[in-house]
């Protein structure tokens, strides 16, 4: 298998966090994994992105030129990376913040930020997107993923963990 994922949004939306979580969840079952953040002068509000590659074969470069899945948390990210895909690529778009229509056959539209607001905190929109991704491409079984997320967030405020899990399930069900 080969799955190349780009997650993009603005700093503070938790783009790097869900990328890292996805890569960590895959460690048990997928032999080759790379996670690469856009590092540098990133600040809250600026563009932020990360790439996760999951593969059964050795991964040459942690940076890909095309992606099998692109997760867009905001408009800037969508504008910047939309060229780097193939006809089959899946695009998951946060329609709360990406207003420009994207014409594609393989598209999943999530009103993530608004849904997150409904759950009580706009900041958990990232977990809604992660849930939506795993529902579409179960590279890790959603049940295992939920268990893993609880482990990874262990030590944080319990109500915060529950809120993130709730967001993850919301994404999963949509």
């Amino acid at each position: 298998m080969l799955e190349r994922i780009l997650i993009t949004g603005s700093g503070g939306q938790g783009v790097i966090l869900i990328g890292k979580i996805l890569a960590t969840l895959a460690v048990k079952s997928i032999p080759h994994i790379t996670f690469f953040p856009s590092y540098g002068a990133e600040v809250r509000g600026g563009t932020s992105a990360c790439q996760v590659i999951l593969s059964s074969k050795e991964i040459a470069s942690p940076l890909s030129e095309v992606f099998d899945t692109i997760v867009c948390m905001n408009q800037e990210g969508a504008d910047q990376f939309c060229r780097q895909m193939t006809k089959q690529s899946l695009v998951i778009v946060n329609t709360s913040l990406c207003k420009k229509p994207i014409v594609r056959s393989n598209i999943l539209q999530m009103d993530a930020t608004r849904l997150a607001d409904g759950l009580g905190d706009t900041r958990v929109a990232n977990f809604i997107m992660l849930g939506a991704y795993l529902a579409a491409k179960p590279v890790v079984s959603p049940l295992q993923a939920e268990k893993g997320i609880r482990e990874l967030l262990a030590g944080k405020n319990m109500s915060l963990i529950d809120l993130n899990i709730k967001a993850f399930r919301t994404g999963l069900k949509s």
Binding site: K20, A23, V27, H32, I33, T34, F35, F36, P37, Y39, P62, L63
Partner: peptide, 8 residues
């Protein structure tokens, strides 16, 4: 790049 990238 090797410093920043994560791998198992």
């Amino acid at each position: 790049r090797l410093g920043q990238m994560m791998e198992p």
